[in-house]
Simulated scan of single mutants.
Amino acid sequence: MEKIMHTPSLPKLSLSTRLFSWEFFLLLITAAVFVINSLASPYFLDPWNLSDATFNFVEKAIVALPVAMLIISREIDLSIASIIALASVAMGFMAQTGADSALIVLAGLGVGLLCGLVNGLLVTRFQIPSIVVTIGTMSLFRGISYILLGDTVMKDYPQDFAYFGQGYVYAMFSFEFVLFLVLALVFYLLLHKTNFGRRTYAIGNNPTAAFYSGINVARHRLILFVLVGLVCGLAAVLLTSRLGSTRPTIALGWELSIITMVVLGGVNIMGGSGTIAGVFIAVFLMGLVTFGLGLLNVPGIVMSIIIGGMLIGVIAAPVLLKKFKNRKPGS
């Protein structure tokens, strides 16, 4: 029987500690970006524009939540965008058979879960590094999508299927956005308030010590890969519903944006630390940046350069800061 690892309760953080936290720094940057965008474009503060802006990042943000937990456990999944594509293709073929929306959604979730299971088994059973496995499955899943669909586009979805990606729950709050808020709360509780979350941190800090403490490290990581795949399937449902079509290029290049959200949120790319709160704030920061640049008609390729620069900067900053602190006076 697996031993339950008990950890002492964490002390409450002082006000000064909170003010110098990464999450507080992100809040300041997000507020600054909000002010700059409102001054740069007269259309930014329009309530409906702000509401519609959430469509541009919510699906990525939903996937970022389980990916954050996976990275905290010292693993990574680079096949997330390809899983979304393959799940979308599966939903497209299901729609062609005349299936209703419920079966189409189940197809997307099922394919996503299966892809996550494949990744997890390859990593945990065969001891292959996750970065190697998921680079391979990234090409595999996307390649299967191209083989099955070719250059064609599937559009024959039931009318009520559009609600998942285009519907509103109340006033200007879309179904996607409300779902993201609910999932953010769920993952916050899962990571920070349960034994499962404590095991995730323990594995990320020292997998060997976690194993000898009674944690089934392989099974835990397998569950995380399956969870990532399942949420990718959910993102495929939302994205396909919003676009109203399926094509093999769907979600192309999303890996960079999603991992940037996670790392920008303060999750250590080497594992062991990070919070859902940080990822939550980073999601809105990136959303505001891309939305503001879009209002200024900045080309997509420039946005990609900016996002890539943010990713490199966030990863490099702690390393440079540590070297600066350890530098001997006069050296």
Rank of each mutant, 00 (worst) to 15 (best):
M1I: 13
K3P: 01
K3R: 14
K3E: 14
I4L: 11
T7W: 09
P8F: 05
P8A: 05
P8W: 07
P11A: 01
K12E: 15
S16E: 14
F20K: 10
I29E: 03
T30G: 06
A31V: 14
F34Q: 02
N37G: 05
F44M: 07
F44S: 03
D46A: 07
L50K: 08
A53T: 14
T54S: 11
N56M: 09
F57Y: 15
A61V: 02
I62G: 10
V63R: 09
L65F: 15
V67I: 15
L70T: 13
I72M: 01
A81K: 04
F93S: 00
M94N: 09
Q96Y: 01
T97H: 12
D100V: 03
A102V: 14
L103S: 10
V105L: 13
A107M: 13
A107K: 03
A107G: 05
L114M: 13
G116R: 07
L122R: 04
Q127Y: 13
I131W: 15
V132W: 12
S139T: 15
R142E: 00
I144L: 15
I147M: 13
L148K: 03
T152L: 07
T152E: 15
V153Y: 08
M154I: 15
P158S: 04
F161H: 06
Y163H: 05
S174V: 00
S174P: 03
F175G: 00
V178K: 01
V186T: 02
H192L: 01
K193I: 01
K193C: 12
T194D: 02
N206H: 08
F211S: 06
N216G: 00
V217E: 04
F225N: 00
G229A: 11
V231T: 14
A235I: 06
R242T: 02
R242F: 13
S245I: 01
S245Y: 08
I250V: 14
A251F: 04
W254R: 03
M261F: 12
G266T: 09
S273R: 11
G274K: 10
T275D: 05
A277K: 11
A282E: 02
L285H: 12
G287L: 02
G287T: 06
G287Y: 11
T290C: 07
G292R: 11
V298E: 08
P299F: 01
I301W: 14
I301Q: 14
V302K: 12
I305A: 12
L311F: 13
L311P: 10
V314R: 12
V314L: 00
I315W: 03
A317Q: 06
L320K: 11
L321A: 08
K328I: 15
G330A: 03
S331D: 15
